[in-house]
């Protein structure tokens, strides 16, 4: 497989990999590094790529595993700590102008969810994956996917309501 062919294959889902990585790692820079690493790994195996029947699913799985490993490693724990110190600066002014800080608040709520719920919510509500795809990707039973998704959505709703009630908006 040539470079151009590879880029052609990877192009449609590289942003999905990045968004998944960012959901887990939170920091944009770390997510960029992770995405780059995953894509380079994929490129190094490009001979095998024709044998994967779903390169996107495979790449998503690689990204998920890579990011979870990063989170587990002490180094990432340290980076994450540093990162949360200035989390609030991450919200681009453009986004704030567009929709106010409700969206930033949701981001915060999602950051507090357990990794599995984060993943499910990201894959379903941002990327619109089917339940079967999610259950394959996360190696979860379809029922467990639905439970996690429902729980995640309800948590977001609940915390959002709390905020509205306190009139912080």
């Amino acid at each position: 497989m040539q470079q151009s062919d590879f880029l052609h294959v990877v192009m449609p889902f590289k942003d999905k990999l990045f968004r998944l990585a960012k959901r887990l790692l939170v920091s944009k820079e770390e997510a960029e590094d992770a995405t780059q690493e995953v894509l380079l790994k994929l490129w190094s195996k490009n001979k095998l790529m024709n044998s994967y029947n779903n390169v996107e699913a495979y790449a998503m799985m690689m990204t998920k595993n890579f990011c979870l490993d990063r989170l587990k490693s002490k180094q990432a724990g340290h980076l994450k700590l540093v990162h949360t110190n200035y989390e609030d600066n991450n919200i681009s002014p453009q986004r704030q102008m567009e929709v106010g800080d409700s969206l930033a608040w949701i981001e915060k709520i999602m950051d507090d969810l357990p990794d599995q719920q984060k993943l499910v919510l990201q894959l379903r509500d941002v990327e619109q994956y089917e339940y079967e795809e999610i259950s394959d990707l996360l190696e979860m039973k379809p029922g467990a996917v639905r439970v996690a998704l429902s729980r995640a959505r309800k948590t977001v709703r609940e915390k959002l309501m709390q905020k509205h009630k306190h009139g912080i908006v």
Partner: peptide, 18 residues
């Protein structure tokens, strides 16, 4: 806001060189 957030999130792009 939930649905708006998800829509905005989907616009995020990977821009780093490969």
């Amino acid at each position: 806001p939930m649905f708006q957030y998800f829509a905005v999130e989907k616009e995020e792009r990977f821009t780093k060189d490969l």
